[in-house]
């Protein structure tokens, strides 16, 4: 039986649960799912959270450098970011595909501060709408932001989780590795292992993810969707993804 929610809704709900009421949480430009997640957290469990959706009406700063400086000061609690590829060591790639960095097969727009924010935000939760062998790789083709830290370097925070349509991975800071945290029903552990290009340290008794509740979905499809459309925060995306068929 298909799930009574689509992948975007699932990821938005799971991300929203990461937002804390006493922190500043943010996402960058072209971040539709995290934008929905931040507004959902606001409308549910974190009404007093400071929320920043860059390049939208929900940003307090007229310039991006003010956001970057806030992060560098250690005031950013949570950041949401995605990567074209994500690897076992928590590195993500937003730059290019191919072995030769001078002559890439595909070139992407890059990270715009991501390599700094990954060190500066207290927690970074990654997400990816595709969980496949080409996205979850042993080693990314280009490290846009590093999961591991060289010795003697100041780092304020780390990646903590990766959320995909089929599973949540958790970053083990001491080992510097991503490991399986939970599997989203109705997917199986075997399927997650098969669709991941690295060893997840998967345990046969892996937990099932707590699915989006009816209450979470109702707020996401009602209040959050309306707010995104009203405020011009990815209105087209909100119309076509929130409340859309699974």
């Amino acid at each position: 039986m298909p799930r009574p929610y689509n992948d975007a809704e699932l990821i938005a709900v799971l991300l929203s649960r990461e937002v804390r009421n006493d922190e500043i949480s943010a996402c960058g430009a072209q971040s539709m799912i995290p934008a929905a997640a931040l507004l959902l957290a606001w409308a549910t469990h974190a009404p007093d959270a400071e929320v920043m959706i860059l390049a939208s009406p929900f940003t307090p700063f007229p310039t991006s450098r003010q956001f970057h400086y806030l992060a560098q000061r250690g005031d950013l609690g949570l950041f949401f970011v995605s990567g074209v590829q994500i690897d076992r060591r928590g590195n993500y790639n937003l730059h290019l595909l191919g072995d030769d960095h001078e002559r890439p097969e595909v070139r992407f727009p890059g990270g715009y501060g991501g390599g700094m924010i990954y060190y500066a935000a207290r927690r970074t939760v990654l997400f990816r709408t595709e969980h496949t062998l080409r996205t979850f790789v042993e080693r990314v083709d280009f490290i846009s932001a590093a999961g591991q830290t060289p010795p003697d370097v100041l780092r304020r925070g780390h990646p903590t989780k990766v959320v995909t349509p089929i599973a949540t991975l958790a970053f083990d800071k001491d080992a510097g590795l991503l490991r399986l945290a939970s599997v989203h029903p109705p997917h199986s552990l075997a399927e997650v292992v098969e669709r991941t290009g690295f060893d997840l340290g998967a345990h046969p008794a892996a937990e099932a993810t707590a699915e989006p509740s009816e209450a979470e979905l109702e707020v996401l499809r009602g209040e959050v969707r309306a707010r995104m459309i009203e405020t011009g925060t990815y209105p087209e995306w909100a119309r076509t993804h929130l409340g859309a068929a699974a």
């Binding site: 560098q72 590195n91 390599g115 060190y119 932001a145 590093a146 591991q148 060289p150």
Partner: peptide
């Protein structure tokens, strides 16, 4: 100075970015 970036490939081949002790 800029926080972070270390461990990434952003620094590779970039003569305009160096790592120094504080």
């Amino acid at each position: 100075p800029v926080l972070g970036l270390l461990g990434s490939d952003l620094l590779k081949g970039r003569k305009d970015m160096q790592v120094l002790p504080d």
